[in-house]
Amino acid sequence: MRPMKAIRQRYEIRFSGSGGQGLITAAVIFAEAAGVYDGKFVCQTQSYGPEARGGRSKAEVVLSDSPIDYPKALNLDLLLAMNQVACDAYFFDLNASGLLIVDSTLVEQYPTSRIIPIPFTGIARDELGREMVANMIALGAVGHLCHRVTLENLEKALLNRVPKGTEKLNQEAFRRGVEEAEKCNLQDLPRSILTETDEV
């Protein structure tokens, strides 16, 4: 069993990329797993409307062990960027000890050395034959790396939410994402030069 971290305060995740990459779906699944199955307090929001279609798209999940007042992200703990535009736009919303996970198939310029690049789209296209499941690979990686959701429940929520007949493909993608994430050692990531308490 993976060690689960307590969420004393808020823990904020943003799934970002372009419209059509399935980021809202990923966020909703995450929120359902953490909220309904794990029993945490969650707030899930998204950018909505024309912006979400084609352009920059973001969906957020705020997690907490106590009721959540402000529903949107204030200071990200984890940012998933599925393209360059989103990475550039949202990187500075991430706190200094937060995790940046990028789709290295589509993000070429990294804004920091503290980064976890995984070629989600590449894996989806080349190994699974369907580019559209990149979001589920990413969901697996986010789920594993954030340590704030049980993976069993995340998978369960995923199987509940995806269209009938696509369960197997999505499950495979999800597990592939977890597998990729397992290769990363968070301890090896560069750290902020100041300690967490020094950061304002």
Binding site: A31, G35, F41, V42, C43, Q44, T45, Q46, I68, P71
Partner: peptide
Amino acid sequence: DEVVAHTREC
């Protein structure tokens, strides 16, 4: 309002 309407909570 739009925030309440589209926020998902448990």
